[in-house]
């Protein structure tokens, strides 16, 4: 869907040439979330802005569906790519409806169609349409504003979404909530998403694919599991942190390692559901000093059990499997 080839961007700064992006190659498949991860000033945002041509590259090219974006008119290109930034950038003099309807308006939709689309999107992002459609940005909380920001980017139903630390300015609780909502939405929408983040936890949670940036280059890329289990590079290992096992377990769920329940668990003992992630399961195992937990379906029927040994086995074996793919 999106293919970046040998991309570079050189800025002139005080007479010196600084390479913000330096030979980046990246491929993102249709419907994938690719997270560009790295410390500030590593070139991830510049790379993102080259994709919708807010920044013109010094070298290399970006292909969308096999077509070089340099051949498109930049204005037309941007209207086909959703764009969400950390500061949201809603226009304070426009209502929520007008803000969501901007790209449709630029594309010449009728007011009725724009309104219908705004109502539909508000419903999708979980804000009561009639209550919010006429509000102004200053009447919204930070989380609500960012939801509208996402709705605005989705308004004309672009196949590609670029998101620059979209949840970075939110408090941890709303951030988690928005990430979850966004992932649930993405399940249905299947957009191709490039997502800039400086936070490893966010990246591991959101990404189908992670590219770790350092000084304008990609130092590692792959599935979150592969990136997390890679210890060969000191920079990557340092960036991920020494608790990478926990981070990996967050991506896996109890249902993946369920075993038939062959022992009796006390009533009221700690238990999990198949959809709980393994980090939660591990935490409960450690806390209760057990080597296995019962796993119940939401309706109360036993689904199986989760053993500590299987969690360990997953951390050992999974890495090579994922890295090879």
């Amino acid at each position: 869907m999106i293919k970046i080839e040998n991309l570079s961007k050189v800025f002139e700064q005080d007479g010196r040439r600084v390479a913000a992006v330096d030979g980046v190659d990246l491929e993102v498949g249709r419907g994938e979330i690719c997270v560009l991860l790295g410390p500030s000033g590593c070139g991830k945002t510049t790379t993102l802005k080259i994709i919708n041509r807010l920044v013109v590259p010094s070298g290399g090219r970006v292909l969308v569906d096999g077509q070089d974006t340099a051949e498109f008119d930049a204005i037309t290109l941007r209207r086909k790519i959703g764009y969400v930034i950390q500061q949201v950038g809603l226009f304070p003099h426009m209502t929520v409806e007008q803000n969501i309807g901007i790209v449709p308006r630029l594309l010449g939709w009728t007011p009725e169609r724009r309104r219908a689309r705004a109502l539909e999107l508000l419903d999708m992002i979980g804000l009561e349409p009639q209550q919010y459609v006429g509000r102004y940005p200053r009447e919204l909380s930070g989380g609500q504003a960012q939801r509208i920001g996402v709705a605005r980017a989705l308004a004309a139903d672009p196949p590609i979404l670029l998101m620059d630390e979209p949840f970075g300015a939110l408090d941890p609780v709303s951030r988690e909530a928005l990430q979850d909502e966004f992932l649930a939405m993405q399940q249905r929408l299947g957009k191709t998403i490039i997502f800039v983040s400086h936070e490893i936890d966010e990246a591991v949670k959101m990404a189908d694919r992670i590219a770790i940036f350092r000084s304008g280059r990609i130092v590692r890329q792959g599935t979150p599991d592969a990136v997390l289990s890679d210890t060969s590079d000191a920079f990557v290992a340092g960036f991920i942190g020494r608790d990478r096992a926990l981070k990996r377990l967050r991506r896996h769920h109890c249902r993946e390692i369920l075993e038939p329940c062959n022992r009796a668990f006390a009533r009221g003992a700690p238990s999990v559901t198949p959809e709980d992630d393994l980090r939660t399961a591990l935490s409960m195992l450690v806390e209760a000093d057990l080597d296995a937990l019962p796993c119940y379906q939401p309706d109360g029927n036993i689904a199986g059990m989760v053993r500590l040994a299987r969690i360990r086995g997953l951390l050992d074996g999974g890495a090579e499997l994922e890295a090879a793919s």
């Binding site: 204005i75 037309t76 290109l77 941007r78 950038g89 809603l90 226009f91 790209v103 630029l106």
Partner: peptide
């Protein structure tokens, strides 16, 4: 930036 990014 968002105005430009949306294609105005």
């Amino acid at each position: 930036e968002s105005a430009r990014g949306m294609g105005m």
